[in-house]
Amino acid sequence: MSGTNITHAEKFALEFPVKLADGRELAVVHLHRPKVRHLKQAQRTETDPAAQQIVLMALMTEEKLTPEDFDDIDLGDFMKMNAFFRRIMGDDQGAAAAGGIAGPVVPLPAQ
Rank of each mutant, 00 (worst) to 15 (best):
M1H: 06
M1T: 10
S2L: 05
S2H: 11
S2Q: 07
G3C: 07
G3Q: 11
G3S: 12
T4W: 10
T4R: 15
T4M: 13
N5K: 14
N5T: 14
I6W: 06
T7W: 04
T7R: 13
T7V: 13
H8K: 15
H8D: 10
H8E: 10
A9R: 15
E10A: 13
K11T: 13
K11H: 12
K11F: 09
A13P: 05
A13S: 09
L14F: 10
L14S: 04
L14D: 02
E15K: 15
E15Y: 09
E15I: 09
E15V: 12
E15W: 03
F16C: 09
F16G: 04
F16M: 11
F16I: 09
P17A: 07
P17M: 08
V18I: 11
V18D: 00
L20C: 08
L20H: 04
L20I: 03
D22K: 12
D22L: 09
G23Q: 02
G23P: 05
R24M: 04
R24A: 05
R24F: 06
E25T: 15
L26T: 04
A27V: 12
A27Q: 15
A27N: 15
A27K: 15
V28S: 04
V28W: 01
V28D: 08
V29Y: 02
H30W: 08
H30E: 05
L31N: 00
L31V: 03
L31K: 02
L31H: 00
H32D: 03
H32Q: 11
H32N: 08
R33D: 01
R33N: 10
R33E: 01
P34T: 05
P34H: 13
K35D: 01
V36S: 12
V36P: 04
R37W: 01
R37N: 03
H38Q: 14
H38V: 09
L39N: 00
K40I: 05
K40V: 07
K40A: 12
Q41I: 08
Q41L: 12
Q41H: 10
Q41C: 04
A42W: 00
A42E: 01
A42H: 02
Q43H: 14
R44T: 12
R44E: 13
R44I: 11
R44F: 08
R44L: 15
T45R: 13
T45I: 02
E46S: 03
T47G: 03
T47P: 01
P49S: 10
P49V: 03
P49M: 06
A50T: 07
A50E: 06
Q52H: 07
Q53W: 06
Q53D: 07
I54L: 14
